[in-house]
Design a protein around this nucleic acid. Structure first.
Ligand SMILES: [Zn+2]
Ligand SMILES: [Zn+2]
Ligand SMILES: [Zn+2]
Ligand SMILES: [Zn+2]
Lengths: 153, 153
DNA sequence: GTTGAGACTGAGACTGAGTCTCAATTTCAG
DNA sequence: CTGAAATTGAGACTCAGTCTCAGTCTCAAC
């Protein structure tokens, strides 16, 4: 998984920037574990790990990683951004449980082709796609069903 | 277009709420013109129109209108929400120009069917879909092309 | 027509994610 | 080494959106 380190370093060098300690700390933390995470979670995680990095630096590093396509940003309308590794399965869509915030994924190659075509039809030059489905995950649906049947109040 | 007034009034009555002056002002402003708008734009518009409504009330009314499905919220990752009339063509997707913020729309019934199916496959009970394509609109693409050819710096 | 419970309102305090500033520190090419 | 340029963290700041609360309005019941 040192792949990302190399890519990041190349990107930085190309822009006369340095791979410093804090940046590497952030990089390793991100590509060591997390799948879908928020800046806040990452900051807390670094704190707990005993390698704190300031909020400003974390945000700056997240921007850099997005710029060099190692990370992808997602917005589920919660007023904060989610990030995920860009490497994995490309262009998958997301399911977001409005009840518990759980995130699931799906993939269908036809979706991408359709989107590309639809964008061109409108004269747009597409750069990225985002398919999001909001609803209730299996657990929360079951919980809701139980609540509906019992406790008729 | 008094249709919306009726629906809103019914919804309010059902919840023991009242269709008050400020609420009606907001309602009429929204369904009189705007297509994709933000809370800020709406507040400014009401101000200019000489019928100011407080920020708090505007937000509260936007929530109510979303709850009764007269409005749909959209988030393009700009840290603020966009709203649009729910009545129009249902479930259309959006194209967002990352350069100028222009919003275009597209519609393909197959997209909805696919999403429904994919959600169920993951055990989700879908409530709403959001397909967003980010890229460059025709104008901005042309502008970019011009910039690239001329001014080689 | 009064009245009172409860809904409504606006002003402004507050929140929270994300950005910006700036002085002190670190990096690295020369 | 040295110094120009990049980097950092602390905390001030921004800005959309929410919350609070005292004063106001609504309406159904008298
Ligand atoms: Zn859930
Ligand atoms: Zn994902
Ligand atoms: Zn544009
Ligand atoms: Zn639309």
């Amino acid at each position: 998984m040192g792949d990302e380190v190399q890519i990041f370093e190349d990107y930085l060098k190309k822009h006369a920037l340095h791979l410093t300690g804090p940046r590497e700390t952030v990089l390793r933390s991100i590509f060591g574990t997390h799948e879908h995470f928020t800046a806040d979670e990452l900051i807390a995680h670094l704190q707990r790990a005993g390698t704190p990095v300031s909020k400003a630096t974390v945000y700056r590093t997240l921007s850099l990683l997005s710029e060099c396509n190692l990370l992808i940003e997602h917005d589920f309308g919660q007023g904060k951004k989610y990030y995920e590794h860009a490497s994995e399965l490309q262009h998958h869509g997301h399911l977001y449980c409005s009840d518990c915030g759980r995130i699931a994924e799906f993939y269908d190659p036809r979706l991408n082709a359709m989107q590309e075509k639809l964008a061109r039809q409108e004269g747009f030059e597409p750069v990225s796609f985002a398919v999001k489905i909001y609803g209730r995950c299996a657990d929360c649906a079951a919980k809701q069903a139980r609540r509906d049947s019992g406790a008729v109040s």
